Computed example of a mutant assay.
Amino acid sequence: MGQWMEFFLKDEALGTFVPIIVYWVYSGFYVLLEHLDGYRMHTVAEEKMKNLVSKSTVVKGVLLQQLIQAMVALILLKVTGEVGESGITLQPSLMVQAIQFLIAMFVLDTWQYFLHRFMHHNKFLYRTIHSRHHRLIVPWPFGAMYNHPLEGLLLDTTGGVLSYLFSGMTPRTSIFFFTFATIKGVDDHCGLMLPGNPFHIFFGNNTAYHDIHHQHHGVKYNFSQPFFVFWDKLLGTHMPYRIVKRPDGGFEAAPAKKH
């Protein structure tokens, strides 16, 4: 028992499993709130009518992706962790870690934008792989990581590996980065416009922005994820939107202009 506790308290294990635990806790929080009709971007009836996959299938798909992700993360963090003479992972200053955070965010955004966009424009890849994620036309919190296993490996897991390696962060710093990225990804798929949400205040890439991408009129726009929108704006795939009130009291992200 003591050996297992020692293992799960190591930075490598925490960097692997904390984001997974946070995924289910944070998305579960939004699922508990999904009946707040006044803050939903889509009605319950619309969700049931439009979505093409059952919620139980979504959960099973996410668990499979997280299993693959955990195996890759454990190996990566174990191999790359720098250990000093004392046997403790060496940590850089907070300033250096902040810079590593920003580098990792840029690398992850860049990888996901171009691969995500390619999967939409390549008919074979979209039909056989990426279309699985778009079975959730109305995004659902637990479905933030619902992908084809190959897409999960290429888009999310490989993107995470590259951001980790290029930024030079340590396994301990990765605990915070990947947990933050996980929370951000879930928030983008939560389907709720809650007042005071800091992700809506500080990020242009947010719940409404990504909701546009999941709708038929926006499927070739707003590819950027999970943090910034600059690649969409630079490369002409940005669809501006406005938040409007629905007759039932909820909110909706509507295109600001036709494309």
Rank of each mutant, 00 (worst) to 15 (best):
24 W>K: 03
216 H>W: 05
195 P>D: 11
187 D>L: 02
120 H>D: 03
40 R>M: 03
105 M>W: 04
189 H>W: 09
105 M>S: 10
139 P>Q: 01
202 F>P: 03
248 D>A: 09
85 E>W: 02
184 K>H: 11
4 W>A: 15
101 F>Y: 07
46 E>D: 13
214 H>S: 13
102 L>W: 10
23 Y>M: 14
141 P>M: 03
13 A>T: 10
35 H>L: 10
228 F>M: 13
135 R>T: 12
148 H>K: 05
218 G>S: 07
60 K>Q: 14
110 T>I: 00
162 L>S: 07
200 H>W: 03
139 P>D: 07
253 A>G: 11
80 T>G: 00
131 S>D: 05
166 F>C: 13
235 L>K: 05
103 I>Y: 10
133 H>D: 05
195 P>S: 12
201 I>A: 08
127 R>Y: 00
103 I>P: 04
104 A>P: 10
81 G>C: 05
19 P>Q: 09
105 M>R: 00
13 A>Y: 15
138 V>H: 13
88 I>Q: 11
51 N>V: 08
178 F>K: 09
80 T>V: 14
72 V>C: 15
22 V>Y: 04
181 A>S: 14
10 K>E: 14
98 A>L: 15
170 T>K: 03
257 K>I: 06
162 L>Q: 06
19 P>S: 04
248 D>W: 12
94 L>W: 14
138 V>S: 03
242 R>D: 08
221 Y>V: 00
